[in-house]
Computed example of a mutant assay.
Amino acid sequence: MGETPQSHLADGRRTARRRTFLRAVPWVGTALTATGTAAGSATDRDFPPPKRTEWSEPISLGNGELRTFTTVAPSGDPTYHGVVLDRDALTGLPSAAELRARAERGEPGDKYGPTGTALEIHHAWSQEFFVPFPETAATPFTFLGLTWNPEGHPPPGTYDVPHLDVHFHMLEAETVDTIDGPRAAAYTIPEARLPAGYTRVPEPGLDGDFAVVTDMGEHLIDPGAPEHTDGEFTNTLIWGAYDTTGNGRGELTFIEPMVTKRYLETVTGTDRYEIPQPTLYPTAGSYPTAYAVRDVPSDDAIAITIEAFTPVGRTEQH
């Protein structure tokens, strides 16, 4: 992995490397018994480790920038996939009205470009980015799908506050780009492929069917999360699924921390949370058992990562 200076975003001397999107590997089921990672708090002054980290090119968000990164251990095993965003990126963000006007002028932008695209997604106007991860063959993760939701999105009273959807995708970007919605998810998901404690969510507008969302897929939730048990949504974890083969059986396709703007503005230290695991995985490789949100004070930035990777092997053919 290439070296980067200690100031990861603010230091303009850092040279970014262009990366192509990774090719998806064949989809087979795999099994893992995971150990949980407890939430904690610490200060990461020099994060991520500069000598073992590679970066994407910068993306403009609000008054700041963001970059994706991949960090590996000296052994070459994966340590982090993540995104670091300037705290300035949380200011000057476009409103839903501004994004709608941009699209209606015929100037929505490019989701693969440095300023993203404006589109109506999740029944709300949003700004969307597709940003590749620097390559590491040990994980199935390919790119970051980041969405700024100025007014949140449904369901009302749950996620309708300003927040970021941070999708760690396991499909090729070109495949995700073809997913359109909202429409019924016309497939089943075997129970072994559902993460522990997670469930499918009927979509009221689709007569109770499960929903596929544009550029994403189906969203699986933990009904015990605070926002579903009379608590407040500050950050939560969504698993995503889609029928990738057309055989009528859905498979896990992304991991999505959802984080409110307010939470990101106030986070200090490191908040780390367990990622519930399925019994069967979509492909062999290393999968994260934790996600984290970190204050990076040396760069006046915030990092959102998946980490604590555990290797899994093949156990089920489609």
Results as ranks from 00 to 15, higher is better:
Asp295Gln: 06
Val213Pro: 02
Asp300Val: 12
Asp11Ile: 03
Tyr198Ile: 12
Tyr187Ser: 01
Pro134Ile: 04
Gln127Trp: 09
Asp295Asn: 11
Thr178Val: 04
Arg87Phe: 03
Pro162Ile: 08
Asp165Glu: 11
Leu119Gly: 13
Arg262Cys: 04
Asn149Ser: 03
Tyr263Gly: 11
Val84Arg: 14
His81Cys: 05
Val72Phe: 07
Asp230Pro: 01
Asp209Tyr: 02
Pro278Lys: 10
His228Asn: 12
Ala308Tyr: 05
Pro49Phe: 13
Thr178Pro: 01
Pro162Gln: 10
Gly76Cys: 07
Thr37Gln: 13
Phe130Tyr: 05
Val72Tyr: 10
Ala290Met: 03
Val83Lys: 07
Thr236Ile: 07
Met258Leu: 03
Phe309His: 03
Pro162Leu: 08
Thr266Tyr: 04
Ser7Pro: 03
Gly246Leu: 02
Ile275Ser: 01
Ile179Arg: 02
Pro50Tyr: 03
Ala96Cys: 01
Leu9Gln: 13
Glu191Trp: 14
Gly2Phe: 09
Glu151Asp: 15
Ile302Tyr: 01
Thr117Pro: 01
Leu194Ala: 11
Asn247Cys: 05
His8Met: 14
Thr283Lys: 06
Ala42Phe: 10
Asp271Leu: 11
Leu252Met: 05
Glu218Gly: 08
Gly116Trp: 00
Pro288Cys: 15
Thr289Leu: 00
Gly109Arg: 06
Pro140Trp: 08
Asp222Tyr: 10
Asp300Trp: 04
Ala185Val: 05
Ile121Trp: 10
Gly113Asn: 13
Ile306Thr: 15
Pro288Leu: 15
Leu171Val: 05
His122Val: 06
Thr270Pro: 09
Asp230Val: 09
Tyr80Leu: 10
Ala124Cys: 05
Ala211Ser: 07
Thr199Asn: 12
Ile179Gly: 03
Leu85Asn: 10
His228Gln: 12
Thr260Leu: 00
Val296Lys: 08
Ile275His: 05
Gly82Ser: 06
Lys261Thr: 15
His163Ile: 08
Thr33His: 13
Pro257Trp: 03
Arg200Val: 13
Arg87Lys: 07
Pro190Phe: 12
Thr268Lys: 11
Pro74Gly: 12
Leu171Arg: 06
Tyr80Met: 07
Ser286Trp: 11
Ala89Phe: 00
Thr244Pro: 00
His163Cys: 08
Ser75Phe: 09
Phe210Trp: 12
Phe254Trp: 07
Asp77Tyr: 07
Leu32Asn: 10
Asp46His: 14
Asp300Glu: 14
Asp110Glu: 09
Phe143Cys: 06
Phe210Gly: 02
Tyr263Met: 04
Tyr263His: 11
Asp77Glu: 15
Arg13Trp: 04
Gly197Pro: 14
Asp160Ile: 00
Val296Glu: 06
Gly250Met: 00
Arg18Trp: 02
Glu65Phe: 09
Lys261Val: 15
His8Phe: 11
Gly248Phe: 00
Ser60Thr: 15
Arg183Cys: 12
Thr260Asp: 01
Asn247Ser: 01
Val84Phe: 08
Val213Tyr: 11
Asp46Cys: 14
